[in-house]
Simulated scan of single mutants.
Amino acid sequence: MRFSTLLKYPADWMTGGQQRSNGVVVSSRIRLARNLCDEVFPSWAKPDQRMHALDRILPAVEALPEMERGFSKSLDSLSAIDKRVLVERHLISREQAGNANGSAVVINRSQSLSIMINEEDHLRIQAIFPGFDLEKAYDFIDRVDSSLEQELDYAFDTKYGYLTSCPSNLGTGMRASVMLHLPGLVLSHQIGKVIAAANRIGLAVRGIFGEGSEAQANLFQVSNQRTLGESERDIIERLQRVIERTIRHELAAREKLLEDNATMVRDQIGRAYANLRFAHVMTSKEALNQLSLMRLGMDCGLIPEWSDESLELLLMEIQPAHLQLLAKETLSPEQRDVVRAELLRTKLKSVPEPDMPSDSDGTWDATSPSGDETR
């Protein structure tokens, strides 16, 4: 599969909106860290050692049935923008994009499976599925991992489990994470409590692009931090319980906002709709946050459901590297803001106007005796 083909077809998780849990869960991800027992780990390996490990690993990965007609490329053969596009699609990490020497990535056609070779570890195996489906993602990646283990000798210790470059990944070597859309908790100023509660029980809460990234578009990744001393199933079950509780809190927060601050919610959703439909300059941060509010409007029934485009896909298409590929040239930040606004106007032109309740349903009426007509 060519790079252009990869870009032409969006990942399954980007178009799986109908599988989201009540508009809260966007995607579920399982990632495994693995190393070969008789090769120097990538972080300490010299260039020729990294190439030797790559030459051993790549054929085994490409031969997987799941990778039939997939995308396989060494990172040093991709441009800086191409690598950034893969980061924006969550197919490689920022760390791998910045250290391409002796590195490669193999991706299946649906982009539900990507395997990074010579990132921090020899193998970073990742599966992303739409909606709240950690069990399905784990079963899938476990089959892939078992197939690779028959061909490659993993570094494993009976006491410490799978050996990894970073001690925090020892044991299962597994990170399970769920991407959540939490505008209700953000707007009601409860998100801080949720993050603190997750941290207290050994979970990490990060932004849209994982560790070190900002939580934009009201999107948060919740994942396990401990990988040693627990089985894979135990980790998944504990994370599932927390996610289920977070979903309930988010839906309750949305309901309360609509009961207590309906005018504020409708105003923000209406402004987001207007900005996205008609603005001619739009920064990345502003676009992400406005799309989040539009998604909230659809989930709450204030904007009719729209089937022409996935909002999850738009979150990727408005990122800097995707915009520059679209324009087929390097763009300054100011130019990207103009191209981004044009793209949003085009993509969202068929979105129906918000279906807001009338003022008799509780919104402020400037023509009523209680309204201040001089404001």
Rank of each mutant, 00 (worst) to 15 (best):
R2M: 14
F3A: 01
S4I: 10
M14V: 07
Q18G: 09
S21V: 10
G23D: 05
S28F: 02
I30A: 02
R34I: 11
N35Q: 07
V40T: 06
W44T: 13
D48T: 15
Q49G: 08
M67W: 04
E68I: 08
A80I: 15
K83Y: 02
R84L: 10
V85I: 15
V85W: 08
L86G: 00
H90Y: 03
Q96D: 04
A97H: 08
N101Y: 11
N101P: 05
S103F: 06
A104W: 06
V106Q: 07
E119F: 01
L134V: 04
E135Y: 12
K136I: 10
K136M: 11
Y138D: 03
Y138E: 03
F140P: 00
I141E: 00
Y160P: 05
C166S: 03
M174P: 03
A176W: 07
V178S: 02
L182S: 03
V186T: 13
L187D: 14
H189E: 15
Q190H: 08
I195V: 14
I201Y: 13
L203F: 15
R206L: 10
R206I: 09
G210A: 12
G210Q: 15
Q216C: 06
A217H: 04
N218Y: 05
T227H: 03
I235T: 06
E244P: 03
H249F: 15
E250H: 09
A253K: 04
K256I: 15
E259Q: 14
R271H: 12
Y273P: 03
A274E: 09
L276Q: 14
S292A: 14
G297D: 13
C300T: 13
I303Y: 01
P304K: 09
S310P: 04
E317K: 05
L326W: 05
A327G: 12
P333D: 03
R336F: 01
D337E: 08
V338L: 06
V339F: 01
V339W: 00
R340A: 07
R345E: 08
R345H: 12
L348H: 03
V351W: 00
S368R: 12
D372F: 15
